[in-house]
């Protein structure tokens, strides 16, 4: 699933490891989510939304054919 995680992370000048620490996930999870290869669970998506203070749909792109 396409998302703006990499952009949001860059705005805060965070590395993947720092973001992983904030979300309490593995660094690899952050990478897989950013590249769109892994869709986070709903609880993790909410954690991401809370961290960046934005609604989920502003971070993740809802592609209908996905």
């Amino acid at each position: 699933m396409k998302n703006r995680l990499r952009v949001l992370r860059a705005e805060r000048k965070w590395s993947q490891a720092v973001l992983a620490e904030h979300l309490d996930v593995s660094r690899q999870s952050v990478n897989a989510i950013e590249t769109g290869k892994y869709d986070p669970s709903l609880p993790l998506a909410f954690r991401i939304a809370r961290l960046f203070e934005q609604p989920i749909e502003a971070i993740f792109e809802d592609a209908e054919d996905a």
Binding site: A17, A20, E21, D24, V25, S26, R27, Q28
Partner: peptide, 10 residues
């Protein structure tokens, strides 16, 4: 593991 680097809880 530098790839996963999990917290104590994880």
């Amino acid at each position: 593991n530098p790839v996963t680097k999990l917290s104590a809880r994880r």
